[in-house]
Simulated assay, not measured.
Amino acid sequence: MSIRVLLVEDVKATHQLITELLDFVGGFELIGTCTTESGALVWLHDHPGEADLVILDLMLREGSGFSVLAGAARGQAAKVVVFSDFASPAVVRKCRAQGALDAISKSDYRQLRVFLEKHRGEPAEAG
């Protein structure tokens, strides 16, 4: 069974990189993409429980990934991993405190691959 992924990323090159990584690692199905905070919140509202994993950027074309993280934490069974240029130690702590499994710097692409390899085959439990 594939893990269903919602990708919230507004930079086209990064979106493509993550899409290719999901294919490379295997076991993931990209079921939705959003480029803005409002788009991601609407997607989560309109598709409750459909995504097992949200890959989330913090700095979006419109809005903030922190609002999406808070929205995902309210009533969603999806796991969230933050993938951002702004994953300082303080931001990592804040993301984890708000329910993210991890926050990974975009400068550490390998760490995202390790995260995906660890979590593939572990769909979110209904809660």
Rank of each mutant, 00 (worst) to 15 (best):
R4T: 11
R4H: 14
L7R: 01
V8H: 02
K12V: 12
A13C: 00
T14Y: 02
H15C: 05
Q16L: 13
I18H: 04
I18N: 03
I18F: 01
T19D: 13
T19Q: 14
E20W: 08
L22W: 14
D23N: 15
D23C: 09
G27Y: 11
G27V: 10
E29G: 06
L30V: 14
I31G: 09
G32L: 04
T33S: 11
T33W: 03
C34V: 02
T36F: 06
T36R: 01
T36P: 00
E37C: 08
G39S: 05
G39V: 04
L41K: 09
V42N: 12
V42L: 11
W43Q: 02
H45V: 06
D46G: 10
G49W: 12
G49A: 13
G49M: 09
G49K: 07
A51M: 04
A51P: 01
D52T: 12
D52W: 08
L53Q: 07
V54S: 08
L56F: 04
L56P: 00
D57C: 01
L58N: 01
M59N: 13
R61I: 04
R61D: 12
G65S: 07
F66K: 02
V68M: 00
V68H: 00
L69E: 05
A73I: 01
G75F: 05
Q76C: 14
Q76L: 10
V80C: 06
V81G: 06
V82F: 08
F83D: 00
S84G: 01
D85V: 05
D85Q: 09
P89L: 14
P89S: 11
P89N: 14
V91W: 08
V92P: 01
K94W: 02
R96I: 13
R96T: 11
A97R: 14
G99M: 12
L101G: 07
S105R: 01
K106S: 04
K106R: 08
D108Q: 12
Y109S: 07
Y109I: 14
Y109N: 06
R110H: 10
Q111P: 00
L112W: 02
R113Y: 09
F115E: 06
F115W: 15
F115K: 06
L116E: 02
L116K: 01
L116R: 00
E117V: 10
R120W: 09
G121V: 08
P123W: 15
A124M: 06
A126I: 03
G127T: 15
